[in-house]
Write a protein that binds this DNA or RNA. Structure first.
Lengths: 249, 249
DNA sequence: CGGTATTTTGATTTAGCTCAACAGACGTGG
DNA sequence: CCACGTCTGTTGAGCTAAATCAAAATACCG
């Protein structure tokens, strides 16, 4: 019955980028709230940033720590985790190049509300919050851009609340897969490959279920030929069907 | 066993305020993101707003409708609901005087992401989004204030995701009661009365459970003398204990 | 070719949902 | 002011989705 996949193959290996100046500028230019800036302005802004290279699975900052920096992903992936006093963690978001994190509006004394850690090797730019606030004051387009993104995240977050409150696990997972595919999907021979090492536990933490239940449902999807997956990777074969499952009756 | 409460009593009757100019100015001045404005600036801003008076249980706008206005509660309470295509609704937030709602960053073509309806009689100020955007461009303190609040809401929202993912209903309800008490609580002879008509169903929709389960747990709290409640009202007698329940082991 | 972490699968338990009936509270009209 | 009707809240019983506990199987690393 179980036609097992054999090979890991197309592992989403992210190259150990060095954060070259060119790459920095290019990525900063991609950040939505810097779009409006001229090349010259962008260069000035860039000077305020410091680049850091992290290995995989490294904690960048911890929930509750003093919030001092705003960061932008240049390469690699970062996950934001909200954790209880116990071990329980909730995976709030997975970020890719061009996304920011770290509480842009924080005032002195504020703390980070989540823990950020790298999911892969990553290159991260940081700017002191003071400096970033000056930039927002100077360029209202930046402030508006940040507001836009924050609003988007609020809406995502609210949608997730709705899902947690009203949908069964199967639909939540189907939805999560579609969302991940849209954000991280890359067309390959196996289907839309989610370019991101993602364990069953990670997936479970994204939809608020246990790793076992997540596994069971993934098996189900696999039997129906909707996905292919192996250790830490998932490829979507039938996105439309998953979308339909997530929404049906 | 069940020592029933008898009277409804201190119903949170909100007076049918007329939105007098004075009240408007006063309340606008209370809105966090207008704090920095001078009296003169505030008056100018005030001119851009239109006041509307709503009866109880009235829909102000619907999820999916074109987003054109930003609104501020002057008096009364408004609830934000996220609803499924089916009847299921999630109660996202309950607002009181001084709070805004309605997607400040929306661009033309955007829609409201939630439905807003009055919980009590209410007086609401509205401003066209275009006008509000001009104000944000002009006064960066306003933009920053909006960002602050949006960030707060995002954090609340994320905390709620965490609760839904990891806490049992009892703790979620205990937490919700404490939060409501902090926001709407008013010291009375019965304890901290939550000044807001709030049904079991509302409470259930706030924590993602069924009205029956909410009722059962409230009965339990009542037996332990932590709360008193009747039809559509709740008073907290032992906030510290509830807080403890929401966090324990 | 092992060794280890991840994933799968099974068995059992349980929190919370659903369905259902009832009771108390409130409003209303006689 | 009382009787009635309706809406909200309470309580019970059974059911089910999903958690938990426990092995086994597999995938990937070196």
């Amino acid at each position: 019955m179980s036609t097992k996949r054999e090979t890991p193959l197309t592992s989403p290996s992210i190259e150990g980028h060095q954060c070259t100046v060119n790459l920095r500028l290019q990525k900063l230019g991609m950040v939505p709230f810097f779009q409006q800036l001229s090349e010259e302005q962008l260069r000035q802004v860039n000077n305020k940033f410091t680049a850091t290279h992290y290995p995989s699975e490294e904690t960048i900052y911890r929930q509750g720590g003093a919030a001092t920096m705003l960061r932008v992903v240049v390469a690699g992936n970062v996950k934001l985790v909200y954790h209880t006093t116990e071990g329980d963690g909730v995976l709030l978001d997975m970020l890719k190049a061009g996304e920011f994190f770290g509480n842009p509006g924080a005032k002195s004394g504020d703390v980070y509300n989540e823990t950020a850690q790298t999911q892969t090797k990553a290159c991260i730019l940081s700017i002191r919050l003071n400096d970033f606030r000056k930039i927002m004051d100077m360029y209202s387009s930046v402030a508006m851009g940040v507001l836009d993104i924050t609003t988007d995240r609020l809406n995502q977050s609210r949608q997730r609340i709705q899902h947690l409150s009203t949908l069964p696990v199967k639909k939540r997972i189907a939805h999560a897969l579609v969302t991940l595919a849209n954000k991280f999907g890359e067309e390959t021979s196996r289907g839309l490959l989610i370019q991101l090492p993602l364990s069953r536990k990670d997936l479970a933490d994204m939809v608020g279920t246990s790793a076992e239940t997540a596994s069971r449902i993934m098996s189900q999807f696999q039997e129906n030929d909707l996905i292919t997956s192996g250790r830490q990777w998932i490829a979507i074969k039938e996105k439309p069907v998953l979308l339909q499952i997530s929404a049906e009756s």
